[in-house]
Design a protein around this nucleic acid. Structure first.
Lengths: 219, 219
DNA sequence: CAGTCTGTTTTTGGATACAATTATCCTATG
DNA sequence: CATAGGATAATTGTATCCAAAAACAGACTG
């Protein structure tokens, strides 16, 4: 029996995914103007799906579109990044608290497995998607779909800089340690410890990202 | 000197606004299928701007779009509405706390003015937009653009039911009282009181909206 | 020489036309 | 008679073409 995809990918949707990756990978710099025709030519499609993909990325906060004036990669100011981290603390703290009593052996094994894979990955984009997967598994048992969607949304404009910050000789070890500690705290159902580690994790990431963001251009 | 609009309305953007209002006004019921061609004919435009408007509304959580299968008005389950209110408590509480020390005479007068206008309005949609304006003015001094955008986003799927709940003989008086109390607490810079009133305000609204949501259909 | 006006070019927004996918209905068959 | 199969219609996704707006360049004027 073959499983048919419930929502077969449309040109616009795969384009959106590609463009997201391109932005995260830094192939397009913040502030850079993105021309519809150019993308259409590059991917061999017409401008219609390009426009839909751009609109999608705009709603995710990755692009800023002005009517008749084109789309440019958004250049979040440091103060906005800061605000996003404050919101992440609120939302992820809530998610973690609610997920805490709902983890079981299976979900904990899954967390460990994801973390193992994460530490094995050797490309930066893999680290990011692995980190997202880890946190989604961490918050998943809370069964809060909208909060989880919000979590993704709050990360989207940030991850671009996280990728930069994950260069050689960076915080990768401390990052992994915090994840392991999170797993331990969840396994022990230690709410206070879990919250403290999450806060530490996000604050450390905030510092790194703010540095990358500030060093990036006029900020 | 004439001020030129920085972003002249495009067909898609005004369509999105119209459709939003149509949904809030209940002209389209949750679960109802929305046909591109029908909207295009109704507004005398082609399907292209219709598609863009629909995508916009999807990103706002008002519609659910499946590829090749059409868009339908989203029917949030009660548990999701509940989650949205929890998130609102987090975000709006944070906004209110940050705005508290930053209000001045001018912003307080503006709040009062908005509340006066709100109580004078006699149509339900006016109440909703007035309520949004009031809360935006309340949180504005916090200078937290992303949080404020999030506030709007969290309300969007809810307001549909608020409109229903604002029928005759409803909570309109208590609602207004809470707003007045909020103004007073802000004027007195009483953080604890402000938080308490906001929480009371949101909890009361939650109850009303959940009732409207549950009575609406299969929930 | 700065600044403004105008004509041209470029780019985006929208309309029309076509292709791909899904839903509907009708028939055949057990 | 219920159901599977397939032709047909309805609907969405994409490409092509046209219109509107903005960016650009160069001439004109103070």
């Amino acid at each position: 029996m073959i499983l048919i995809p419930l929502a077969p990918a449309t040109t616009a949707s795969v384009l959106a995914q590609r463009l997201r990756e391109a932005i995260d990978a830094g192939r397009w710099r913040p502030g850079e103007l993105v021309r519809q025709e150019q993308i259409a030519a590059e991917y061999g499609v017409s401008r219609i799906p390009v426009r839909e993909a751009l609109a999608q990325l705009q709603s995710e906060g990755l692009l800023e579109i002005a009517h008749y004036r084109g789309a440019r990669v958004s250049r979040p100011r440091a103060v906005e990044i800061d605000e996003l981290f404050d919101l992440r603390l609120l939302v992820e703290g809530d998610l973690l608290a609610r997920a805490l009593g709902r983890h079981d052996q299976r979900s904990l094994r899954e967390l460990t497995r994801l973390q193992d894979r994460l530490e094995d990955a050797d490309d930066r984009l893999g680290w990011i998607s692995g980190d997202i997967a880890f946190h989604e598994a961490l918050y998943g048992p809370a069964e809060r779909p909208r909060s989880l969607a919000l979590f993704r949304q709050l990360r989207a404009p940030i991850d671009r800089f996280s990728v930069q910050a994950l260069g050689p000789g960076t915080r990768k070890q401390g990052w992994a340690d915090e994840h392991r500690q999170l797993i331990a705290a969840v396994a022990a159902s230690d709410a206070a410890a879990a919250q403290a580690i999450l806060e530490q994790h996000l604050q450390a990431t905030r510092a790194v990202v703010l540095a990358a963001c500030s060093g990036d251009g006029e900020n």
